[in-house]
Simulated scan of single mutants.
Amino acid sequence: MSNAAAPEQGLPEQALDVPALQAWLQQHIPGFQGPLEISRFAGGQSNPTYRLRTPRKSYVLRRKPPGVLLKGAHAIEREARVLMALANTQVPVPHVYGLCTDEQVIGSWFYVMDMVEGRVFWDASFSDVPADERAAYMDAMNEVLARLHQVDYAAIGLADYGKTGGYVARQIQRWSGQYQNDQDAGRHPAMDALVEWLPKHIPAADQVAITHGDFRADNMIFHPSEPRVLAVLDWELSTLGDPLADFAYHAMMFRMPSDILGGIAGVDLQAAGLPDEAAYVQAYCERVGIEGIKDLDFYIIFNMFRFAAILHGIKARSVRGTASSANAKEMGDRFQRVADLAWAQVERANQRAASH
């Protein structure tokens, strides 16, 4: 969920230590002046996020949740690192003022960045703008993702931001293990079939780039009136990975229904003023200088499987009563649907292969 887009709410009982935070802000933000007013963004994101208002401007604070955390989870230091590394590239990101690893300040690690004012669209149909402008909004997303994948990650200090190579194979192994080892949400035939099918069909090509991991319309701030991305948000899943897998996650919107990740499957694309999947893929390929993505079906199936595994985990936490989000049951209940959708893509790909 996009943090800067979510409605704001009052602070919970465990409010931030305002004097301590204000002292840190004065030390790390040139020209910072209070008084400081704080509100929390509502929503299901795993890292609590706050708007910090001052008379002159607003900032955003992202923190790890207080308390004992799973190893590797809520790695806001990675978010801060990738945002700072991308600051002087063609990828639009908010300016980060600093990362605080002193838990004495507010009780957990946090970083502070600029509040980027603009528009957020909750689905990829861009139905809030005139039909003749929607293709330009889609193209703006396409361009930004292509730019990200062309960044020289070593040159901006991210050579050790993740393992290089074998990304898809590692992801399949990781999510298959999580699915098989967590019995509370049950098994599903389509998911079991995917666990068996995917490792046998991994493409030989193994490119490496900075990958966002959750690149979709509602994780971006658009210009208030133009089809232009001002900031890409929510870098929690970013790493060094396969750019084609990252693009396929984004392009999955063409095969997802509107109630899952804001997809546009079933939309009359021509009537809505939107490009079709083939045109969208072609635009990306031209930007990154490749002929095409011959394994696009595999990459989309892989991403649907990964998303189904995430939903399976949410469902299991809901069953155990440990889910943090209020809509965890509703999200978890989509697990079987997404697994079925992924297996339907396998059958579709097989039919296409048989007809050629």
Rank of each mutant, 00 (worst) to 15 (best):
Ser127Thr: 13
Pro94His: 04
Ala75Val: 05
Glu117Gln: 14
Ala87Glu: 14
Phe121Asp: 04
Val68His: 12
Phe126Val: 09
Met84Glu: 10
Gly107Glu: 04
Glu79Met: 08
Tyr59Cys: 08
Arg56Gln: 15
Glu117Gly: 09
Val82Ser: 05
Ala80Gly: 03
Val116Pro: 00
Arg63Tyr: 03
Ser58Arg: 10
Pro66Tyr: 02
Leu99Ala: 06
Val96Phe: 09
Leu99Arg: 01
His95Val: 12
Pro65Ile: 08
Val82Lys: 03
Asp102Phe: 13
Met115Trp: 13
Pro94Leu: 05
Val68Ser: 14
Glu103Met: 04
Phe126Pro: 00
Phe126Tyr: 15
Ile76Phe: 02
Val68Met: 12
Gln104Ser: 14
Lys64Ser: 09
Cys100Asp: 09
Val82Gly: 02
Val68Gly: 02
Met84Arg: 10
Leu69Ser: 05
Arg119Gln: 14
Phe110Asp: 01
Phe121Ser: 04
Met113Thr: 05
Asp123Trp: 00
Ser125Glu: 05
Leu86Tyr: 09
Arg62Ala: 03
Asp102Thr: 06
Met115Pro: 01
Ile76Val: 12
Val120Ser: 13
Tyr111Ile: 07
Arg63Ala: 11
Thr101Ile: 07
Asp123Thr: 04
Leu61Asp: 06
Ala85His: 04
Glu117Leu: 11
Val60Met: 07
Tyr111Arg: 05
Ala85Tyr: 02
Ala124Gln: 10
Ser58Gly: 14
Gly118Asp: 13
Asp102Tyr: 14
Ser58Val: 06
Val112Trp: 00
Leu70Val: 13
Asp128Cys: 01
Ser58Tyr: 01
Phe121Thr: 03
Asp128Ala: 15
Ala85Arg: 00
Leu61Ile: 13
Arg62Met: 09
Leu70Arg: 11
Asp102Cys: 09
Leu86Asn: 11
Ala87Val: 08
Asp123Val: 07
Val112Ile: 12
Val96His: 07
Leu69Trp: 10
Val96Cys: 13
Pro65Tyr: 09
Ser127Met: 12
Leu99Lys: 06
His74Ala: 04
Val68Tyr: 10
Ser108Arg: 05
Leu86Ser: 10
Ser58Glu: 11
Phe126Thr: 04
Gly72Ser: 12
Val91Gly: 03
Val96Ala: 08
Pro92Gly: 08
Ser127Leu: 11
Thr89Tyr: 08
Met115Phe: 15
Lys71Gly: 02
Ala75Gln: 14
Glu103Cys: 02
Gly67Tyr: 14
Tyr97Gly: 10
Gly72Met: 10
Val112Gln: 06
Asp123Pro: 03
Asp102Trp: 14
Lys71Ala: 13
Met84Cys: 07
Ser127Ala: 15
Lys71Gln: 13
Gln90Val: 11
Trp109Tyr: 13
Leu83Gly: 02
His74Trp: 04
Ser127Tyr: 12
Ser125Gly: 12
Asn88Cys: 03
Thr89Met: 11
Arg62Ser: 02
Gln90Ser: 15
Ile76Pro: 00
Asp114Trp: 07
Ser125Trp: 02
Ala124Lys: 00
Gly98Asn: 10
Tyr111Val: 07
Glu77Leu: 01
His95Pro: 08
Gln90Pro: 02
Asp123Asn: 15
Met84Ser: 12
Leu86Lys: 11
